[in-house]
Design a protein around this nucleic acid. Structure first.
Ligand SMILES: [Zn+2]
Length: 432
DNA sequence: CCTGCCGGGAT
DNA sequence: ATCCCGGCAGG
């Protein structure tokens, strides 16, 4: 639910809501070369590589090598873009012509001296921006229109509240450190982020991807070891502990080079855009409705009106899930139209079972906090950095015809209104 | 008019 | 953080 309309004079908000600019989009290669055979080699983050981009060759640094898909995310400093490439479309040397696709030329599993350089400098920014990158998902989504995704939040590096890709796991309602990392300076931030990336790039999408049709195992390549584990983390831990030793002297990712994954899949051809079961929104509808339960009174109740206000259950509930902070999606699409189901991002709207251990008292009380929190806390973070006024998207909060507290209870019973209404804010009890 | 609610302001 | 309200958009 985007702020819909109401952008009249005081529209700066509306502006920033739809202000999505073109640039900064993550270019997604539609690479066509499908040569088979190679790979299983790995790129390490920070490594210098070359890719073809817009007809010419560009240098970049590896951010992440997702060996599962054999896809490499690369940051191109010159273009200030992130791209994803198949491993076979990546080169380690500037030869414009042909030859050394990394797959065949990668060397020792350790950082070269100059790469370290790059690392220090780039890693921060690279990782930083990557952590907000929407492009995390893929494959399962098939037809995605990645461009769109990229564009939406690519423009400005904010992307606060929401998470792209499929996170919705029960676990982390917290949208992660919003905004861009504050601690670029911190040398260890690297690690933290790394982990995070791992979480996102590997743990998350991976299991989803090869759901049940493929079995994956990770095989330790350390001489004389040959241990096989079923999870990346597992194997990494194994390598780190058993082989690399605890000493932090090894880069976090060094484990990457000492294992390889082994699949045996039945039906290699994962139905491309086929099912989105676990990953995407269960409902085909783009709009974020207040999740599962009775958000729409209509379905359960004849009408919001018909039941006298105080106390009915769903009410309490909906009250609790204080209006999805629409504006949070500072950068999302301006209109409901083009929202591809696939690259949906999950706004902070985990509202549901999230916080608030406190039993809600009766009604209309615990709400206030929520409102504010959602509204300003998460929405505020970037007053400045938000992309400046842009197109006036014509939408304005469409006046939902649902009657709101004021109308329902009447001004004389103001105390029964939901907090938002009392505060003259967007009603939260009767959402549109 | 009235209603819904954004942006601000006060405490 | 909470609460309140001016004033505008839309009907
Ligand atoms: Zn209300």
């Amino acid at each position: 639910m985007v702020p819909k309309t109401r952008l009249g004079k005081r529209s700066p908000l509306g502006t920033l809501v739809c202000g999505s600019s073109a640039e900064g989009l993550t270019e997604t290669g539609a690479h066509g070369c499908q040569d088979g055979g190679l790979h299983r080699s790995k790129l390490y983050p920070g490594q210098k590589v070359y890719v073809h981009c817009g007809g010419q060759e560009c240098g970049g640094v590896v951010e992440q090598h997702n060996h599962v898909d054999n896809e490499v995310s690369i940051f191109l400093p010159q273009l200030n873009q992130h791209v994803h490439r198949k491993l076979e479309d990546v080169w380690t040397s500037p030869t414009s012509s042909s030859t050394s696709s990394v797959s065949s030329s990668i060397d020792v599993p350790r950082r070269s001296v100059e790469a370290v350089d790059m690392d220090e400098i780039m890693a921060a920014m690279v990782l930083t921006s990557l952590s907000c990158s929407p492009v995390v998902q893929h494959s399962t989504q098939g037809s995605v229109t990645p461009a769109l995704c990229g564009m939406e939040n690519g423009g400005s590096e904010l992307s606060d509240g929401g998470y792209w890709s499929c996170d919705h796991g029960n676990g982390s309602p917290a949208p992660s450190p919003p905004i861009e990392e504050t601690d670029k300076s911190n040398p260890h931030a690297d690690e933290g982020l790394d982990m995070e990336m791992d979480q996102m790039l590997f743990n998350e999408p991976t299991p989803r991807k090869r759901k049940n049709s493929v079995k994956v195992a990770y095989w330790c390549l350390w001489p004389n070891c040959g241990k096989v584990l079923t999870t990346v983390v597992g194997i990494k831990r194994h390598i780190r502990n058993s082989h690399l030793g605890q000493s932090d002297e090894h880069s976090q990712r060094e484990e990457d080079f000492y294992y390889t994954e082994v699949y045996q899949d039945f039906e290699q051809t994962a139905p491309p855009g086929g099912h989105r079961a676990s990953c995407t929104s269960p409902s085909p509808i783009p709009s974020q409705h207040t999740p599962p339960s009775p958000s729409t009174p209509d379905t359960l109740q004849p009408s919001p009106l018909s039941q006298s206000a105080p106390g009915s259950f769903w009410q309490v509930h909906s009250e609790h899930s204080y209006q999805a902070p629409a504006p949070v999606q500072v950068v999302t699409q301006s209109k409901p139209v083009p929202v591809p189901v696939s690259c949906h991002w999950t706004p902070s709207l985990t509202v549901h079972q999230s916080k608030q251990g406190s039993p809600f008292r009766r009604r209309s009380v615990s709400v206030g906090e929520q409102w504010l929190q959602n509204n300003s806390a998460s929405f505020r973070p970037h007053p400045a950095s938000v992309s400046p006024p842009r197109n006036h998207c014509t939408s304005r909060r469409i006046r939902g015809e649902a009657k709101k507290c004021r109308k329902v209870y009447g001004i004389e019973h103001r105390d029964q209104w939901c907090t938002a209404c009392r505060w003259k804010k967007a009603c939260q009890r009767f959402l549109d």
